[in-house]
């Protein structure tokens, strides 16, 4: 597994894709610091951007990379290696290079601007963590979709749809539900609903950091317990880990029975 991981990491880290991804995040993050002139605002804006960019790029890249490495996978499949180590290594190699590009691209401008020594060091770490989780989760989801779908266009389309679903549609449906059932106690329901969407979980982590004063304004014991204690942070982190793990399990399962 480590061999495959190492090679796909090296392969990708040399590609234009990953380098432009790194550069892109460098520009975005440096630009936000430069134009906002204030770190707190930059961190806040970047958090919003990361929610959709990391998930979108993760989902696109997972598909593209899988389809582009199909023949390579065939070559490796004929070697004396276990299937699960091939696919998990391959996925992890891709994910590691995406994640490194993101962390370096976003982190460098903040380091250069001295965020580590400011009050925003913890927000900054949270921001990186969320980016890493979202990249891993969405690249795994799209890798799995591609593994399942021989048709590239269908696979790519489905991946983009899944992203759109989690990024926008899900929240739209949730809002309709919340407004429609206004008269019922909905705090537990809404928190549970949030846990089924990794973008929403990441958003909640951001709310815990940036909007805690507003969140405490809602009267509900469940909410105040969730947002007022470390419970919210711990549950969200745990769920993100689970979300990162489940698609890998699916990849493994599907890889075992697939024909090449």
């Amino acid at each position: 597994m480590w061999k495959i991981l190492k090679y796909s990491f090296i392969d990708l880290f040399r590609s234009k894709w990953i380098l432009s991804y790194l550069f892109f995040f460098f520009i975005v993050s440096e630009g936000l610091i430069y134009f906002n002139g204030n770190l707190s605002k930059s961190v806040a804006s970047l958090m919003n951007i990361i929610l959709f960019l990391c998930s979108l790029i993760g989902i696109m890249f997972g598909t593209i990379y899988y389809y582009n490495s199909k023949e390579f996978i065939q070559l490796i499949l004929a070697q004396p290696l276990k299937r699960s180590s091939i696919f998990i290594g391959h996925y992890l190699g891709m994910n590691l290079s995406l994640v490194s590009a993101f962390v370096i691209g976003t982190g460098l401008p903040f380091l250069l601007n001295g965020v580590i020594f400011s009050d925003f060091a913890d927000s900054f770490v949270l921001l990186l963590l969320i980016g890493v989780f979202l990249t891993s989760i969405f690249s795994a989801i799209s890798y799995y979709i591609s593994l399942k779908s021989e048709n590239r266009i269908a696979g790519f389309g489905l991946s983009i749809f899944i992203w759109l679903f989690f990024a926008v549609i899900y929240d739209g449906l949730l809002m309709v539900a919340l407004l429609y059932f206004e008269d019922y106690p909905l705090d537990k329901f809404s928190l549970i609903a949030i846990m089924f969407n990794p973008i929403d979980i990441s958003r909640i982590l951001i709310l815990l950091k940036l909007d805690i004063s507003a969140m405490m304004g809602y009267s509900g014991a469940v909410f105040s317990k969730f947002f007022g204690t470390y419970l919210g942070m711990s549950i969200s982190m745990l769920m993100l880990m689970l979300w990162s793990l489940v698609p890998i399990i699916f990849i493994n399962k599907s890889a075992k029975s697939k024909d090449f």
Binding site: D11, L12, S15, N68, K70, E71, A78, P80, L81, K82
Partner: peptide, 24 residues
């Protein structure tokens, strides 16, 4: 999977990772 160490295989269509060098 271990038996495959006894087999050398030449696939029909070979596309390799584009960014790797031959010696790599």
């Amino acid at each position: 999977w271990n038996y495959r160490k006894d087999i050398s295989y030449l696939p029909q269509i070979a596309h390799f990772p584009e960014n790797l060098r031959v010696k790599e």
